[in-house]
Each structure stands twice: as structure tokens, then as C-alpha cells.
Design a protein around this nucleic acid. Structure first.
Lengths: 161, 161
DNA sequence: AGAGGTTGATTCGAATTTGAACAACCTCCT
DNA sequence: AGGAGGTTGTTCAAATTCGAATCAACCTCT
């Protein structure tokens, strides 16, 4: 991965984080918590949605075919399959999402946005974007945005697992 | 990411995120999930600790006075007060943490690490650090580390709230 | 002293998350 | 055709989270 770093810092030093590494790690950890908390509050307040629920609506809205298989949805969101079953159930209760059976696989279930779900999402989106700006984007300049996109994109990509 | 929604609000650019902003946001969000999940697994596997529990042990170990008030601990960790009560209860059950009453305030409760708690933390720490490296630090070069530390430190700082 | 407001920590109930277990099904290989 | 082996989505119990309510103790001000 980073051979230069590995070379310059002997193995026993790698058991800890130097000052810069620690600062990056702490910043990452705390900013994650802060952002998550802020978005959770804003969405609950303004749209009666949890962040996981909002993300599900977005994924469904983006679905090119108009509907997605549950498993695919669970992977795109970050939750477990059972967690998805629960949340889709919640959204279905509120009429924002509909389940259909899959034509090609009797076991399969397709989830799709209802018209009402689309409306709720469209109404919630601007406030959500504003919250993302307020808590994250607006604190970063262009160079930082570029580095974050590149570096964290790499971290988010799944080389393993 | 969401072409439908982007298309619907092209007028006010601040109502949506441009490509770079979106890339940074998505990277941030997904890497957060990925890192959280990885650490949760590793700690559970290697030390039978959740990440919140590990963080509590670290905070207690760092406490200069050897003990911290519950409220102070709740603010330093990211959980609510009731969440802290629960987790300290769990750690106390396992003998890793002890509660003492506060000398200066009868209502107050001080939490401190037990000897066993210190040992568990010391045994768990190297594996945790390795996991942090594996999932985050090793994917970043020095310049990125520096930018992350600066930028995310700013985001994590609490100008409001 | 003591009324009124604040703070510290816990308890409680509701909501959510997870992994394991499960039944039904699909795929592929022979 | 016959399975072996993997997949799909749900259900279940257990663990965790949060906020509101609670209750005692504290502080301030007169």
C-alpha cells in the first residue's frame, strides 16, 4: 500500500499512530459522528425520515429500471439484509415504497418508489442538501474537496471484503 | 448520483452538489460506513468489545485524574447520557470499569478503569491500531493525511451546537 | 432559610440493528 | 432427472440506541 511509509517507520512504530496520523484519524472519526448526528436530526425534523430511510429513497429514485431487488438494495445501502427488510417495511407502511415480486425469480422481491415516495423525496432533498453543505461541504475549500473525493473514494472502494 | 433530482433543480447551484462536492460527500459517507463496520468487526472478534466500548476505555485510560464524571464522559464520547449509563453498566458488569461517587457532588458519579480494564485495553490496542491502518491510514499518502487532519478537524470542531 | 430553577445520572419505553436460523428456490454439473 | 450447494428474503431474539420523564441534589437570589 504505502511502501515508503512502511520503510521509514519500523514495525514497532507501526503499532501506533504518529501525530499526523492520529489527527487524521480523530478528525475522521469525530467528523463522521458529527455529520451523522446533524443529518439525522435535520431529516427527522424536516421530513420525518431517518438517514437510512432517506438513502433508500434516493437509491430507489436512482434505480434505472424503476425497481431494485432487495439484496442489491441492501448492498448499495450499507445495512444488513434483515435491516433492509425492516426499513422497507417501515417505508411501505407509510406508502412511500411498494414491493413487487420478481418476474424472473419467485423468491425475489423488487422494491420501487411510489408516487408519494417520490414526492416526499423531492420535498426532502433540498433541506438535506443544505444540511450536507452546512455540516460538511461549506467547511472545505476546493483543494480539500478534491483531496477528500480522491482519498476517501479510495477508502470507500472495496479492495477486499 | 441522483440525476433526476439534479435535473429538477438546476437553477440554484447551492440547492444541489456539483460533481466534486458529490464525490467528496459520497466518499465521506461510504468510507465512514466502511471504516465503522470494519472496526466494529475487528474489535468484536479480537477483544469482545464494541467500538463505543473501546472508545470509553481509551477515554478513561487518558483521564489525567484517573476518573471522569459521567457527563464529561458522555460529551467526550459521542453518545447520549442514557447511552453512556448503559455502556458503562456493561463494562462494569465485565469488571473493566468501576463507578465511584464524586466527592464534591453527591449526585455525581465518577467512572474509572479497573486494573483488568487497563489490561484488556492494552491487549486490544495494537489490533485496533492495525485495523485503523488497514482500513484507513494505509490508503492515504502524507499529503492526504495532512489535508484530512486539517479539513476534518475543522468539520469535527464545534463552531455551533 | 427556602423558593425556584438548574444539573446529574438513571430508568423507562419505543425504535432500530444485527446475526443466526429458516424455508423456499435457483443453478449447475453429471 | 437428481442432487449438491449457493441464494433470497423473512423472522426471531438479543443488544443497543435515543429521548422523555424522573428524582435527588445543587445553586442562586432574596
Amino acid at each position: 500500500m504505502n511502501n515508503l511509509l512502511r520503510y521509514r517507520w519500523p514495525m514497532n512504530e507501526r503499532a501506533w499512530l504518529d501525530e499526523q496520523e492520529m489527527a487524521a484519524w480523530q478528525g475522521f472519526l469525530r467528523s463522521s459522528h458529527r455529520v451523522a448526528h446533524h443529518l439525522e436530526q435535520q431529516l427527522k425534523e424536516d421530513a420525518q425520515l431517518s438517514h437510512p430511510q432517506y438513502e433508500l429513497l434516493v437509491l430507489l429514485a436512482d434505480a434505472s429500471a424503476g425497481a431494485i431487488r432487495m439484496t442489491e438494495l441492501a448492498e448499495a445501502a450499507i445495512t444488513s439484509k434483515s435491516g433492509l427488510t425492516y426499513q422497507v417495511g417501515q417505508l411501505e407502511k407509510r406508502g412511500l415504497v411498494r414491493r413487487r415480486s420478481c418476474p424472473t425469480d419467485v423468491r425475489g422481491v423488487l422494491a420501487e418508489l411510489t408516487e408519494q415516495g417520490r414526492q416526499v423525496l423531492e420535498k426532502a432533498a433540498p433541506g438535506h442538501v443544505a444540511a450536507v453543505r452546512a455540516v460538511l461541504i461549506d467547511h472545505l475549500d476546493r483543494e480539500e474537496l478534491e483531496v477528500l473525493a480522491r482519498a476517501l473514494g479510495r477508502v470507500a472502494a472495496r479492495p477486499g471484503h
